[in-house]
């Protein structure tokens, strides 16, 4: 099963996230971000980089994680096709991401993401795992 699903939001774009574990959910959040900006199948796993994010609580950590990915793309053109969360607690995330640098001649353009927002942000534990929702500012 895909770990995320889009939902309608006028002007912006919402994503519902799922995961058996919290780590899964954060990895799916990364995959959703990639899917919004580009065709993920066009991104090759050529380089791996380490990503570290901190925040005062878990919900904010999710937004900061996505903000980190937005920054890596907008400032350095980095696109990722594979995410791995190595460790995660309520205030800190350490993970790796594999991908390559944006190449306009090879990559399929989709949408530019301005930022991840806190609007209607949710992150909850359910019997079957974790569920969350984030709205991206496009």
């Amino acid at each position: 099963m895909q770990g995320f699903r889009y939902f309608e939001h006028t002007g912006d774009l919402g994503v519902e996230l799922y995961g058996d574990t919290l780590e899964d959910l954060f990895e799916h959040a990364g995959e959703a971000f990639t899917d919004i900006v580009i065709d993920p199948s066009s991104v090759r796993p050529l380089q791996e980089i380490e990503l570290r994010v901190e925040a005062p609580d878990l919900e904010q950590l999710l937004v900061e994680w996505l903000s980190e990915l937005i920054f890596r793309f907008d400032a350095h053109g980095r696109l990722f096709c594979h995410y791995h969360i190595r460790s995660l607690d309520a205030q800190r995330l350490v993970g790796t991401a594999r991908g390559e640098v944006f190449d306009p001649t090879r990559h399929t353009i989709r949408t530019e993401v301005k930022g991840a927002t806190y609007h209607q942000l949710e992150l909850r534990r359910y019997e079957q795992g974790w569920k969350g929702r984030v709205i991206f500012d496009l």
């Binding site: 904010q60 903000s67 920054f71 806190y118 609007h119 942000l121 500012d137």
Partner: peptide, 28 residues
């Protein structure tokens, strides 16, 4: 956009310290 992202983090803390109740966190 980055100024916005950076400011949201700061405003989240500020809202807490000024005791502002937020109906939605994006309104920090």
């Amino acid at each position: 956009h980055q100024i916005c992202s950076d400011s949201l983090s700061l405003m989240m803390q500020a809202a807490r310290s000024y005791g502002i109740h937020l109906p939605d966190r994006q309104l920090c």
